[in-house]
Design a protein around this nucleic acid. Structure first.
Lengths: 199, 199
DNA sequence: GTCTATAAAAGGATAGAC
DNA sequence: GTCTATCCTTTTATAGAC
């Protein structure tokens, strides 16, 4: 009960949570929410069934936490790019490069994108649907780049949201392929820029 | 037992099958395979639980049949376009236009694309994975257009398969959006052409 | 904090009545 | 051909031991 022990406990607690989340990330990404069994998560993380419920209230809460991280990370990344002193086309190019490289280099990035895909296509409770709106932060930031670029005439005309959605849709699709064919190489980011750039 | 009755029975049989498939299409597309309960399909089609099992061996068989239709239709469409006496860019443009219009006009088209998405991300038995290879017919046909166009210099350089995959990935993503936001308008097909066309 | 055993529920599939 | 009732497995979630 000394402070020392409490600190250690907090550390262990955090470690275990992360361990569970890390195992769950892979499984949820690969199978989706409904098809994932607690026993799948347990098998991947080498812990017991009961332990998962010691740290999380339900299967849904685990998924919720992972989705939150996915959404937060992607909107923050876009906001970072937005701060760079670059013309719109370059902001879009940076975004494409950064995301494709991250999917290529870190397996978890592809997993997180898959979590978002699953959240989009599943029948989700309101809490989860609420999180999905945050994703619109990323889409909307990108749509902002497009609007800006259309004003200066560097970019293709057309509905900015439609273009931004297509841009992310393509990335999500690529993440799906990456995961099913591990030897699949991410394409040149320029083809994503081509969605938006004037032909 | 007269021939007349057999014919009528065959008709009824076919009608029921289609009725079940039609109800299942919407539900599978909206919730995915694992999350779909037989009772969901039943509710959508206004028939009884047992009837479904009279016409199909299992939930999986229903999904399999729908996926087969999705795959067959898309590869056939691409082969049709390939027969047209058009330069590669135009074949790609036709494909983009045709598919986006079909998603826009027919709800079922979007549903069928969603079936494919779910099949891509689910943990599927070998039979279903086998069907997914057929999808590569469509992707590969498109990749063929790209290769052709690269030879003549009209199209962007880079891995044709990567571009074809991105093209379809974008469409699948758009179908997802279409279904969750029914008022979402499909973007200009040119943005899909932009993935492949020289910038 | 972690595990094992068990409860409780859900859902796929079948049998048999009509 | 169609429906209702039931079986039985699977799986989430909890209780309680260590």
């Amino acid at each position: 009960m000394s402070p020392r022990n409490e600190e250690q406990n907090a550390l262990i607690k955090d470690e275990r949570r992360e361990q569970i989340l890390s195992a769950a990330l892979k499984v949820f990404a690969s199978k989706g929410f409904a098809a994932t069994k607690i026993s799948d998560i347990v098998a991947g993380g080498g812990m017991s069934h009961g332990l998962v419920y010691h740290y999380f209230k339900s299967k849904e809460e685990i998924f919720y936490e992972l989705l939150k991280r996915a959404m937060t990370t992607s909107s923050e990344s876009l906001l970072m790019v937005d701060k760079l002193p670059l013309p719109p086309v370059e902001k879009i190019r940076q975004t494409a490069r950064y995301i494709l490289k991250s999917i290529e280099d870190y397996e978890d990035t592809a997993y997180y994108f898959l979590i978002v895909v699953h959240a989009s296509v599943m029948e989700a409770p309101d809490e989860i649907k609420g999180l999905m709106d945050i994703s619109n932060t990323a889409v909307q930031t990108l749509a902002g780049f497009v609007r800006e670029g259309q004003r200066t005439g560097e970019l293709r005309e057309g509905d900015p949201m439609g273009m931004a959605i297509t841009f992310f849709a393509a990335i999500e699709g690529l993440a799906i392929y990456k995961l099913s064919m591990s030897n699949f190489k991410m394409p040149d980011p320029e083809i994503l820029v081509g969605i938006i750039k004037k032909g």
